[in-house]
């Protein structure tokens, strides 16, 4: 499954490192994290990681392979 998570703000290098399995692009005022998500457990793990870093999730969606 490929997913795309849009979070508010620009992520610092340190925070990007917390998601080594995802690619990212920075757009004005937002960061887009995207990549292959292994399963549901991984998906919820990503959400928890965002939450524990105080990131605000604006959007999350599955994207076609």
């Amino acid at each position: 499954m490929r997913y795309e998570i849009r979070v508010e703000g620009h992520l610092s290098e340190a925070l990007i490192e917390v998601f080594p399995e995802l690619d990212h692009v920075t757009v004005p005022g937002q960061t887009l994290l995207f990549g292959y998500v292994v399963d549901e457990a991984h998906l919820y793990g990503l959400l928890a990681r965002c939450q524990s870093l105080g990131l605000r999730i604006l959007e999350m969606r599955q994207v076609p392979e």
Binding site: V7, G9, H10, S12, L53, G54
Partner: peptide
């Protein structure tokens, strides 16, 4: 600034 608040 447009960084994520907490980290920044």
């Amino acid at each position: 600034d447009r960084s994520t608040i907490a980290d920044f």
